[in-house]
Amino acid sequence: MKFKSLQKKRRSGFTLVEMVIVVTILGILSGIGFMQFRNVQETSRKNADYVAAANLATAANLCLGENPNIVTTDTGKNKIISIDTLKEKGYINYIPKSQSQNSPFVIKIVEQGEEGKKSEELRVSCDLGGGNEVIFYPKPE
């Protein structure tokens, strides 16, 4: 009789080894989940920048249609449209900030093509300095 009562007591509950294994598995799964969550955050920040850049490009095109002389020229061949001017003229309600980069958006009109077949393209990017930029509009494929 005493032997049967001891067996019942030993079988109720979990051993320390079983608890450590469960905690280890939960730790591994949560680590994988946090890494996936960080990737989702980065992707959503970039997508928010693409949307903001597309809105800026639309506002710039509308502004250029009504005010073609609003363009200023920088030191290179590129022409720049001031985002502050778009806000002052009412084409945008606020000046958007880049979510994925630590720099403001820049709207440029870039000349492309060969000498005989030049065309202009509106480009919205973030200037990272040193000649580096991240282009958000048109969205790179």
Rank of each mutant, 00 (worst) to 15 (best):
K2V: 11
F3P: 06
K4C: 03
L6E: 07
Q7N: 14
K8D: 04
K8T: 04
R10M: 07
R10F: 12
R11L: 12
T15Y: 02
L16C: 05
V20R: 04
V20Q: 04
V22A: 11
V22C: 04
V22H: 00
V22G: 06
V23R: 00
V23A: 09
G27N: 06
I28V: 13
S30G: 05
G31A: 12
G33A: 11
G33W: 02
F37L: 06
F37Q: 05
F37H: 01
N39W: 03
V40C: 03
V40T: 04
Q41E: 04
E42G: 01
S44R: 10
K46H: 08
V51Y: 00
A52R: 08
N55I: 08
A57T: 06
N67K: 10
N67I: 14
N67G: 05
I70R: 13
V71P: 07
V71H: 02
T73D: 09
D74P: 13
K77N: 13
K79F: 12
K79H: 13
S82Y: 03
E88C: 08
K89N: 15
G90P: 11
I92F: 11
P96W: 14
Q99T: 11
Q101H: 14
N102G: 09
V106I: 07
I107D: 08
I109Y: 14
V110E: 11
E111Q: 08
E111M: 04
Q112H: 01
E114D: 11
L122N: 01
V124F: 02
S125R: 07
C126E: 07
D127L: 01
G129D: 02
G130Q: 00
N132Y: 00
I135P: 02
Y137I: 00
E141T: 10
